[in-house]
Measured scan of single mutants.
Amino acid sequence: RKEMTAACTPRRRIINLTSVLSLQEEINEQGHEVLREMLHNHSFVGCVNPQWALAQHQTKLYLLNTTKLSEELFYQILIYDFANFGVLRLSEPAPLFDLAMLALDSPESGWTEEDGPKEGLAEYIVEFLKKKAEMLADYFSLEIDEEGNLIGLPLLIDNYVPPLEGLPIFILRLATEVNWDEEKECFESLSKECAMFYSIRKQYISEESTLSGQQSEVPGSIPNSWKWTVEHIVYKALRSHILPPKHFTEDGNILQLANLPDLYKVFERC
């Protein structure tokens, strides 16, 4: 597991931080080997919608929660590849102030007048994250320049770009939802926020969305749709870069829909 690298990086740093090793061990302890084997050997059937997909393993048909699986995938990559990410360069710098204002204007932020003026909160978020810029760049390849612009994001899987519609809320939550006081809790909560931002979430995906850094293989055609990215990038990574937690067998994120021999018997009677 320590050699797990989802995106190509030129050289690998050895990380011996106790906090990170502890988080890696927790993933191992909570892992479910049968689910790992199923995901490793599954045959992708198709997307139901951005949140759900169908896959077959041996004779069984499964309904998989793409949102939760991708979130767990990105969390584990962030923990196992800690401080070893490439950088996704933004085509132009994104001012943190503008991103924070967009987030505060969104109902998702939960902002009320009692929280104070949005401009003041946005300025605080910019200054707060600028103070964390060195650590964010060093460990997470999340790059913020001296003017308070976001200029780079971590490359977690080759050819995958997170849904940038979720970027404003991500920046807001970096400042408000991460435990910045304790090292282990900081790395864990920061990785979880980043994983949620990178995950496939239906509120940020339309039929026209593209999450891939590449064009489709047909010359002159439109960019790959999110469905292509889910199948050929995300579920491909799920084959080798995730140890599913045991609770996925109990919380409805992986559901067995049918045993195909039983279905064949039904059709034979028709």
Rank of each mutant, 00 (worst) to 15 (best):
R1Q: 12
R1E: 08
K2E: 12
K2C: 15
E3A: 10
E3C: 09
E3P: 09
A6F: 04
A7R: 05
A7H: 06
T9Y: 06
T9L: 14
T9C: 09
P10V: 10
P10K: 02
R12N: 12
R13V: 07
I14Y: 07
I15P: 06
S19P: 05
V20I: 15
V20G: 02
L21W: 09
L21K: 15
S22L: 14
L23D: 00
Q24N: 04
E26Y: 06
I27R: 04
N28H: 11
N28C: 10
E29N: 11
E29Q: 09
Q30W: 06
Q30L: 13
G31S: 12
G31E: 15
H32K: 05
E33H: 11
E33D: 13
E33F: 08
V34R: 07
L35Y: 07
L35E: 03
R36C: 08
E37F: 07
E37P: 02
L39E: 00
L39A: 02
H40R: 14
H40L: 10
H40V: 14
H42W: 03
S43D: 09
S43N: 14
V45R: 07
V45A: 05
G46D: 13
C47S: 09
C47F: 11
V48E: 02
N49P: 00
N49K: 04
P50Y: 07
A53P: 01
A53T: 04
L54F: 04
Q56S: 13
Q56D: 09
H57E: 07
Q58K: 12
T59W: 11
T59R: 15
T59Y: 07
K60T: 11
L61T: 08
Y62M: 08
L63G: 04
L64K: 02
L64V: 08
T67Q: 08
L69G: 01
E71Y: 11
E72I: 06
Y75W: 04
Y75S: 02
I77C: 05
I77G: 01
I79A: 04
F82T: 02
F82A: 03
F82P: 00
A83K: 03
N84L: 00
N84I: 01
F85I: 05
F85A: 04
G86R: 05
L88C: 08
L88W: 12
R89D: 13
R89P: 15
L90N: 03
L90C: 05
L90A: 03
S91N: 11
S91T: 15
E92A: 12
E92P: 09
E92G: 10
P93M: 06
A94I: 10
P95F: 08
P95S: 10
L96F: 00
A100N: 03
M101C: 15
A103K: 00
A103M: 01
L104E: 02
D105T: 11
S106T: 11
P107F: 09
E108K: 08
E108G: 10
E108F: 07
S109G: 12
T112N: 09
T112A: 09
T112M: 12
E114W: 06
E114K: 09
E114Y: 08
E114A: 06
P117A: 07
P117L: 07
P117T: 09
K118R: 09
K118E: 04
L121E: 09
A122T: 05
A122Q: 02
Y124A: 14
E127V: 09
E127C: 10
E127T: 11
F128Q: 07
F128W: 09
K130W: 08
K130F: 13
K131S: 12
K131R: 10
K132G: 03
M135T: 06
M135K: 04
D138Y: 04
D138M: 06
Y139L: 06
S141A: 07
I144F: 08
D145T: 07
D145Q: 03
E146W: 14
E146Y: 13
E146N: 08
L150M: 07
L150S: 02
L150Y: 01
I151H: 12
G152C: 11
G152I: 03
G152E: 04
G152F: 03
G152S: 11
L153D: 01
L153I: 13
P154I: 01
P154N: 02
L155A: 09
L156W: 02
I157G: 00
I157D: 01
I157A: 03
I157P: 00
D158W: 07
N159L: 05
N159E: 13
Y160N: 02
Y160G: 00
V161H: 13
V161G: 05
P163K: 08
P163I: 09
L164M: 15
E165L: 07
E165P: 08
L167T: 03
L167K: 00
L167Q: 00
P168I: 01
P168E: 03
I169F: 11
I169Y: 12
F170Q: 01
I171Q: 02
I171L: 11
I171W: 02
I171V: 15
L172M: 10
L172F: 14
L172T: 08
L174T: 04
A175M: 15
A175C: 11
T176D: 04
T176S: 11
E177C: 06
V178Y: 00
V178T: 06
N179A: 10
N179P: 06
D181V: 14
D181Y: 08
E182T: 10
E185A: 11
E185I: 10
E185L: 10
C186V: 03
C186G: 02
F187Q: 02
E188Q: 10
E188I: 08
S189K: 11
L190H: 00
L190P: 00
E193K: 04
E193P: 00
S199A: 09
I200K: 02
R201Q: 06
Q203I: 12
Q203S: 13
Q203R: 12
I205M: 12
S206M: 09
S206I: 08
S206G: 12
T210N: 09
L211G: 13
L211S: 13
S212L: 14
S212N: 09
Q214L: 08
Q214K: 08
Q215M: 08
S216E: 15
S216K: 10
V218D: 14
G220L: 11
G220T: 11
S221C: 13
I222D: 14
P223N: 14
N224I: 15
S225M: 07
W226C: 03
W226L: 02
W226F: 03
W226V: 02
W226H: 02
K227R: 06
K227C: 04
K227T: 06
K227L: 04
W228D: 07
T229M: 11
T229S: 08
V230F: 01
I233G: 06
V234T: 02
Y235G: 01
K236W: 04
A237T: 07
L238C: 08
R239P: 00
R239H: 03
S240N: 11
H241C: 05
H241K: 09
I242G: 01
L243C: 11
L243A: 10
P244R: 02
P244S: 01
H247Y: 10
T249K: 15
T249V: 15
D251S: 12
D251P: 04
D251N: 08
G252I: 04
G252Y: 04
I254G: 01
I254M: 10
L255K: 10
L255I: 08
L255C: 11
Q256I: 06
Q256H: 08
L260R: 10
P261E: 13
D262L: 05
Y264D: 15
V266H: 14
F267E: 15
F267H: 15
F267N: 15
E268Q: 08
R269M: 05
C270N: 15
